[in-house]
Design a protein around this nucleic acid. Structure first.
Lengths: 253, 253
DNA sequence: TCCCCATAAATGTCAGACAATTAAATCGTG
DNA sequence: CACGATTTAATTGTCTGACATTTATGGGGA
């Protein structure tokens, strides 16, 4: 009764390697396979699923690309269920975020509002849990940002580091992970903005106020200044955009 | 001077397929390849990089697993740079989040605080942008949650839908993406909690208040109730944990 | 006892072939 | 000349078999 082979059904019309990868992925996500468990060897898997070894290997590479497994060569080697580390998770999130924003026509304002909304959510926890180290890190970045003649790139990097320290103040790695991804993913969009000296001064001034508010553990004040920072950033992006549009329409021909 | 082949350097000691995947990934992320661009055929790639076709295929499967490319068979087929859709990005984020939490010994409290911190960040935007549709969706979920005899699973699902509607109210797809991933990733941890009837009533009551506050566009009130909801959830998780611990220590033997 | 080396197991890589699919070119016919 | 059916070519999907490389393990010799 069950039509075994041909299957004009739409159940799983994908590649064999994709099907096998999905099967193993399900086993991992459901907990059937736990961290550091060893998967069967490629030869055994190809036997189990009735496919050739290259096909199994393609499936394993798919899983490796998602950091679900890691492989080791040699005797007692093989594929093992991988315990995802925070740096790896951070990197994956950043990649996904970058793609989502850059390939998907997300405008800067939307991404920017999202980023500041998330960051404002961190403020109360950060006010509660921040240590002097976080304050020191933020003030160090403020000093760097204040240097004249800093490249836009360096200014942006320092800005990221400042906000990262602010978020890390919440002492919640999951929160840091989300925010790091959001900020990192925005970098390509952020790099299209040109910060004039006057704009930088405005930003640095707000950074100082935010740091002071964090030192005083005043969440409401942080929230307010972050909001102001969001507004300022949006305004500058708009100005920068207008500048580019002008350059692109006026200069040529 | 540049030792070309053997390379005892640590520059790129990885697999060939990983190196090739990285090269193509960089080309995509840097914008050299844009959405819907066609990559060279597998034969051309294997020629370009001086490796065999199976190796190239493994590299392409890695990229396909990250939704960076999609492939099509037949003449004029090939690998194309893929425009990541929100549902795909959402699915990837959820997978990463689930792995990060479940395989990495993240305790429920940390994940829960992160989730509510992010959600509180959405509150102001949601209060500003929510439509009547969002309110209706939330009230519909409240009705469902209030039904007696609902399974824990169904209750959780409704809870997720409620919060999703709340976040969608911000009308910011990037924000929705982040929150959806955070909430979805927490599901396995959430499912370990048993909600007693009294607890459910408490949660539903807060949901009602949150919806009312959203209708009134009162961001501060939403924030306050979300905070309360976080506290309640944490308390219930603690109680549930204690219950499990008791079961695991008392029942056996 | 300790060190060196052969062995085996596993992944990494290659080469070549065939199957399946799909778009486009070709050809035949009205 | 136009239009539809057929052939063709290009490309991915899969298989087979082989060899290279890495690494733990065990045995033999100093």
């Amino acid at each position: 009764m069950p039509d075994n082979s041909k299957s004009q059904q739409k159940t799983a019309e994908k590649d064999l390697s994709a099907q096998i990868a999905q099967a193993i992925r399900d086993a991992i996500l459901s907990g059937d396979l736990v961290a550091d468990d060893r998967l069967p060897s490629e030869a055994e898997l190809s036997d189990t699923y009735g496919v050739s070894r290259p096909t199994v290997r393609e499936a394993l590479k798919r899983l490796a690309a998602q950091s679900l497994i890691r492989t080791k060569r040699g005797a007692s080697g093989g594929a093992f269920v991988h315990r995802l580390s925070y740096p790896e998770a951070y990197s994956q999130l950043a990649t996904t975020a970058t793609l989502l924003l850059s390939l998907n026509e997300v405008d800067f304002a939307t991404a920017c509002r999202a980023r500041f909304a998330l960051e404002r959510g961190c403020a109360p926890l950060s006010a509660q849990n921040r240590s002097v180290d976080h304050l020191a890190a933020m003030r160090a970045e403020i000093t760097r940002q204040s240097q004249p003649g800093l490249s836009d790139e360096a200014f942006c990097a320092s800005d990221v580091a400042f906000h990262r320290a602010l978020v890390d103040g919440a002492s919640n790695p999951v929160l840091s992970w989300h925010l790091a991804g959001a900020v990192e993913g925005m970098q390509p969009l952020m790099n299209m903005i040109t910060f004039r000296n006057r704009d930088r001064a405005e930003i640095v001034a707000l950074h100082i106020r935010i740091t002071d508010a964090l030192e005083a553990r005043d969440a409401a004040l942080i929230d307010q200044f972050l909001n102001a920072l969001c507004t300022v950033t949006l305004r500058q992006a708009e100005a920068s955009e207008a500048l580019h549009a002008q350059k692109n329409s006026g200069a040529p021909i």
